[in-house]
């Protein structure tokens, strides 16, 4: 049976089609999910894609978090379903309190778009098991509000529990505390990532194909489950 990975489209999502494509290239079946539909259509995992859902009104991800589909995503994530939030999806996960902290405006105030080097710090989450801990990858990064913040206690907890999934290398593009590019929940099934692995899955369009590992990881996780 083919593994089904849902990709949610909110009004204002931009990278849903690229995320679907990455899912397909990894060998799974992408399933388009709609923000107003509570039904997850028997998917095994969900990707919340990048973009500007609801125009980023109020705060990035603040309105999407209350969309009907998120009720079910939050419920299933708590039961262990793998969920990956990329960029705007990461913001939605923080607003949903599935992940701690928040994403605020880049310290430079500029929208940043660049190929970014990352170090995978935790290669045991549902979305990173195809990497090795310490592996360096380059994927595109593009955000205006990507600066990860949390209070000192939460940051220490994330570090102590190995829940920092990826860190910026060479340059911290947005002022994120402790160079954090991505984090996971305690169970390792929910991952939020500010850079865009779904844009680095094919040599024609990506700087590398090193983003594909996020999508093959979840496939392996589900097949072995």
């Amino acid at each position: 049976m083919t593994t089904r990975v849902g990709v949610v489209t909110f009004p204002g999502s931009l990278d849903d089609r690229d995320a679907q494509r990455a899912v397909r290239l990894a060998g799974a079946e992408p399933v388009a999910l709609w923000h107003r539909d509570k039904d997850l259509h028997q998917v095994d995992a969900v990707v919340l894609p990048g973009g500007f859902s609801y125009g980023d009104y109020l705060r990035c991800g603040a309105i999407s978090r209350f969309s009907p589909v998120m009720d079910t995503v939050i419920e299933q994530a708590k039961l262990g379903m793998p969920v990956l939030g990329i960029c705007n999806g990461f913001q939605v996960l923080c607003e949903s309190h599935l992940l701690p902290g928040a994403l605020t405006r880049n310290d430079s105030l500029h929208f940043i778009c660049r190929d970014q080097k990352l170090r995978i710090e935790n290669a045991s989450t549902a979305w990173t098991r195809d990497y090795s801990a310490g592996q360096e990858i380059v994927v595109p990064l593009k955000n205006g509000e990507g600066r990860f913040v949390a209070d000192g206690r939460v940051l220490d907890e994330l570090e102590a529990e190995g829940r920092v999934v990826a860190r910026y290398l060479d340059l911290n593009p947005n002022g994120s505390y402790r160079d954090i590019a991505g984090i996971t929940n305690a169970a390792g099934n929910v991952v939020g990532l500010m850079p865009h692995p779904e844009h680095a899955v094919e040599p024609l369009t990506g700087p590398t194909t090193e983003g594909l590992g996020f999508f093959t990881s979840v496939l392996k996780q589900l097949v072995n489950a």
Binding site: T104, R105, N106, D107, S108, L109, R147, V149, D151, G175
Partner: peptide, 13 residues
């Protein structure tokens, strides 16, 4: 308002 300990780059600008 942003909490006092959170950097406010817009306010700074």
């Amino acid at each position: 308002m942003l909490k006092p300990e959170i950097l406010d780059p817009q306010g700074q600008a």
